[in-house]
């Protein structure tokens, strides 16, 4: 693969990683820890929101993040013709 194309492929990959890792950080460290106190003032059903993010919500989002990454990368691999042959 030529160098320029490779650079662009890598840049796009890094952009995906940045977006997803920001979400990863926000749901766990921001919502579940740093802002857990104030968020606990909001209730969803019986859950104080900060507590819910810390013990439930962040885990659901983690799962979603991996599958979003998989689908983005599979598309990107095809677009740049670097996917694996079946």
């Amino acid at each position: 693969m030529d160098k320029e194309k490779m650079k662009l492929y890598w840049k796009k990959n890094l952009r995906f990683l940045t977006i997803l890792l920001i979400i990863w950080f926000v749901v766990s460290y921001v919502a579940g820890i740093l802002l857990a106190g104030p968020l606990n003032g909001i209730k969803i059903g019986g859950f104080p929101l900060g507590f819910w993010f810390a013990q439930q919500g962040s885990i659901y989002v983690f799962v979603a993040l991996i599958f979003v990454y998989v689908s983005w990368m599979n598309k990107l691999d095809k677009e740049f013709d670097v996917d694996e042959k079946e």
Binding site: L17, L20, L21, W24, S28, G32, I33, F51, A54, Q55, S58, I59, F62, L65, I66, Y69, V70
Partner: peptide, 16 residues
């Protein structure tokens, strides 16, 4: 929550 998030969030790092 340190265990719940700590022992699952690592998989995001692993996968990405």
């Amino acid at each position: 929550a340190v265990y719940l998030m700590g022992w699952t969030g690592g998989y995001v790092l692993l996968a990405l």
